[in-house]
Computed example of a mutant assay.
Amino acid sequence: MMPPLGALRVFEAAARLASFSRAADELHVTHAAVSHQIRQLEEWFGRPLFRREKRGVRLAPEAERLAEALSASFERIAAEVESLRLRAKSEITVACIPSIATRWLIPALGDFLASQTDVTVKVVYAMAAQRLRETGCDVLITLGADLSDGVLCERLFSRVNRPVASPRYLERKGRLDDAERIAHADLLHDETTAHWQTWFARAGLQTTAARGPVFQDFNLLATAAIAGHGVALCPVEVCRREIENGDLIVLSDLSVLEQESYFLISKSSRHKAVSAFCAWFKGVVDPASEL
Rank of each mutant, 00 (worst) to 15 (best):
I106L: 11
A108Y: 10
A108N: 14
L109N: 03
L109G: 04
G110M: 07
G110D: 09
G110K: 04
G110Y: 08
L113G: 05
A114W: 05
S115C: 08
Q116R: 10
T117P: 09
D118K: 08
T120Q: 12
T120C: 07
V121A: 00
K122N: 13
A126E: 01
M127Q: 14
M127A: 14
M127G: 13
A128Q: 10
A129N: 09
R131K: 15
R131A: 00
E134R: 02
E134S: 05
G136S: 04
C137V: 03
D138C: 04
L140V: 00
I141Y: 00
L143N: 02
G144D: 01
L147S: 15
D149H: 12
G150S: 08
G150Y: 10
V151S: 00
V151A: 00
L152S: 13
L152W: 07
C153M: 00
E154A: 09
R155F: 02
R155D: 01
R155L: 05
L156T: 01
F157I: 05
S158V: 06
R159T: 10
R159Y: 09
R159Q: 14
N161E: 15
R162F: 06
R162A: 10
P163M: 05
V164A: 11
V164T: 09
A165Q: 03
A165V: 04
P167C: 06
P167A: 00
P167Q: 06
R168T: 13
Y169Q: 02
Y169S: 01
L170E: 05
L170F: 07
E171M: 09
R172P: 08
K173T: 13
L176I: 06
D177H: 13
D178E: 10
D178T: 08
D178G: 11
A179W: 06
I182K: 05
A183R: 13
A183S: 15
H184Y: 11
A185E: 06
D186Y: 04
L187G: 03
L187C: 08
L188Y: 04
H189I: 09
T193Q: 12
T193W: 07
H195E: 15
H195N: 14
Q197C: 10
Q197G: 11
W199T: 03
W199M: 04
A201I: 07
R202I: 04
A203C: 08
T207P: 05
T208L: 09
A209H: 02
A209M: 05
A209Y: 01
A209T: 07
A209P: 03
A210S: 15
A210L: 15
R211S: 13
G212K: 07
G212Y: 07
G212H: 07
F215S: 01
Q216N: 15
D217G: 04
D217Q: 14
F218T: 09
N219Y: 09
A222L: 15
A222Q: 13
A222N: 12
T223S: 15
I226E: 10
I226K: 11
A227W: 02
H229M: 12
V231H: 05
A232G: 11
A232H: 04
L233F: 01
L233I: 02
L233T: 00
P235M: 06
P235S: 15
